[in-house]
Design a protein around this nucleic acid. Sequence first.
DNA 1: TTAAACGGTGCCAAAATCTGTCACCAAAGG
DNA 2: CCTTTGGTGACAGATTTTGGCACCGTTTAA
Lengths: 239, 239
Amino acid sequence: MNSRTRQDALARHLRRSGTTTVAELAAKVSASRRTILRDIAALRDQGFVIHSDPGRGGGLQLDPQSVQTTPRLTVAEVFALLISVAAMRAAGNLPFASLADAGLAKIERALPPDKLRDLRRFLDCLHVGQLAPEQDLSDLRPLDAILLPAFETAFLTGRLLRFHYRDAKGSPTLRTVEPQAMLILPPLWYLVAWDPARDAFRHFRMDRITTPEPLEDTSFRRRHVPFAADVCPYRDLKR
Amino acid sequence: MNSRTRQDALARHLRRSGTTTVAELAAKVSASRRTILRDIAALRDQGFVIHSDPGRGGGLQLDPQSVQTTPRLTVAEVFALLISVAAMRAAGNLPFASLADAGLAKIERALPPDKLRDLRRFLDCLHVGQLAPEQDLSDLRPLDAILLPAFETAFLTGRLLRFHYRDAKGSPTLRTVEPQAMLILPPLWYLVAWDPARDAFRHFRMDRITTPEPLEDTSFRRRHVPFAADVCPYRDLKR
DNA sequence: TTAAACGGTGCCAAAATCTGTCACCAAAGG
DNA sequence: CCTTTGGTGACAGATTTTGGCACCGTTTAA
């Protein structure tokens, strides 16, 4: 057994059983008492707080406060979490927001710098507001997981986006547009894009978009997006 | 230099510089070519995807997709994130929910088992629904960060909770109640509790609660919470 | 008071592992 | 053909880890 894996095993055993003795641990991982004591010292160096009581009935005890959770997330999962929280802020007052923010900030800090830049650029295209109450939500459907990576590449590399769209009346069309922004009006999500075929801005409800496909063409320019009532069904648009 | 720190240094250098050769890395950490190649193999074993091109102009290239971020979160932050997402689900359809869920599942898995049990018990007391539209939201205030730890201890250890409350008319009272459940009707949060002084269930809007204080008394019992319109201003209550 | 059970430290030799060197192979490009 | 690049196997020496030992301080029970 490797030195590192043995120390991990010791930490796991300490977490499970409230109190243990050095002899027990030695039997568990089949190592000598001396080695266990050295490993305990190493764990303490790594920041684990391990109380020890000498004498009969004594033993080792891991302070659970000192154990930090270190999940391993992929970049896409971090994207999804941050976008979700951005949407939640739009929904109203977010309880315990400061704690959740602290957690998200830590998650952000762990991103590699290029991914962090991408993330900020992506979130810059995100606008949140409150939906006007008279909106019809009867045909709302859950969003497809394919949308996120497609939108990511389209926004980050500035590509034309082609997709099938089913409008409010249910008639399907194939669109090829310049993606400019995303608008969150919970529970609805919109893609705000310039439609070259119509020479005008259009907003597309995301749950009506299927089979999105970023094209090779990156020749279009960023435009100033007019967030006005005649373009999007929003109320009180704010960042 | 330690074997592990050297491998970390190599990973860092690979992340920064797009393409590198073995010879460059060897010069960087002043180790032999053979050692570098062994370290590269170890990194690949650890899950890093490193492309390699033989021949002139070739070299090593780290696939950024394979780099996982490993933030260090405290238990309270994980609580806050999970509660926030529970609230968000209540707000409507959650975009990219499957990805965010995968991230949260990883975060949960990294929790120590006793904390995970606590978390599940706490979330069991959480009920979400949709607010009836006629509700008055004019005096909505952000929640105090002190509430979360107080509610945590009250629910997990089953203690009486004492707090100051300011009702809809603005008149302040001091309450001592048995906390039974939490109700989320975005953007409002309610504490559902049995009030022994009135011998009945009461719901308290959380943003009207100040200075919560868990008492020593743990003698009360869990009750069946009636989520009915006459108790809570909810619509379509669902888990 | 004594003895046993517990954590903790210093030391040293044996065991295990890591490292560098060397020879050599395969692929790519001139 | 040669050069440049990654990749593998083998082996001896350097380095680290490990286990055993003696010993210390504390606590508790006999």
